[in-house]
C-alpha cells in the first residue's frame, strides 16, 4: 500500500543525546579493519588539529539510523519494515564526530515516492552537538519492496 504523501516534511522530535565514546570509536575502527591512528590515538588526532580522537566517516550512521526508527516505526506511516532495503546513503559534514560529543538527531521525512509498487522513503537526519552546533547531516533512502505478486 502506498505511503501517505502528507507525511512529507514531517519532523520528529530531537533524540536524547548519544555520547560518543572513545572505546566505541576504537571498536568500530577495528571492525572495519581501519588502523588510521586518528581514530584511536589522541596524540595522533591532535597532530591533525582535532581536540580528541575522531570517528570514521560512516560511524554516525548507527546514531542517525536509530533516530530514523521514529519514522520507520511510526504506526501512522505504516512502513512494512520487513521488506525494506537500504537504497542510498549520504553524509555531509560540518566537522568530524569526536569522542566526547553528545549528539542529538532530528529526523525529517524529505520525500515519499511510489515506483513500480515499491515505497521509497527519504529521511534526513540533522545531527547537532550539545552546544547546538551542526556536526553532520545524514540522508538515508529506504526502499520497501512490493510484495511478490502485487
Amino acid at each position: 500500500m502506498a505511503l501517505d504523501q502528507s507525511f512529507v516534511g514531517r519532523t520528529y522530535p530531537p533524540t536524547a543525546p548519544y555520547e560518543v565514546g572513545r572505546e566505541k570509536i576504537r571498536e568500530f575502527a577495528e571492525a572495519i579493519g581501519d588502523a588510521n591512528p586518528a581514530y584511536t590515538d589522541t596524540e595522533a588526532a591532535k597532530a591533525l588539529g582535532h581536540s580528541d580522537v575522531i570517528a570514521p566517516p560512516t560511524f554516525v550512521f548507527a546514531i542517525t539510523f536509530k533516530a530514523a526508527g521514529a519514522v520507520i516505526e511510526d504506526p501512522q506511516l505504516g512502513l512494512d519494515y520487513s521488506r525494506v532495503v537500504h537504497g542510498d546513503q549520504k553524509f555531509a559534514y560540518t566537522r568530524p564526530v569526536r569522542a566526547g560529543d553528545r549528539l542529538s538527531v532530528t529526523s525529517t521525512i524529505e520525500a515519499i515516492k511510489s515506483l513500480a509498487g515499491n515505497d521509497i522513503l527519504d529521511i534526513r537526519g540533522e545531527v547537532h552537538d550539545a552546544s547546538g552546533e551542526h556536526v553532520v547531516t545524514a540522508w538515508t533512502k529506504l526502499v520497501s519492496r512490493a510484495p511478490e505478486g502485487a
Binding site: 586518528a38 566517516p57 549520504k90
Partner: peptide, 26 residues
C-alpha cells in the same frame, strides 16, 4: 561496504576529516 570504500580516500588524504561529503547507492 560503504565504510571500506572510503578508506581508499581517507588513507590517501591522511586526515579522515578531509572527507566533507560522502554518498553511495547500494
Amino acid at each position: 561496504t560503504m565504510a571500506e570504500a572510503i578508506r581508499v580516500v581517507t588513507d590517501w588524504a591522511g586526515d579522515p576529516a578531509a572527507v566533507v561529503e560522502y554518498g553511495v547507492r547500494f
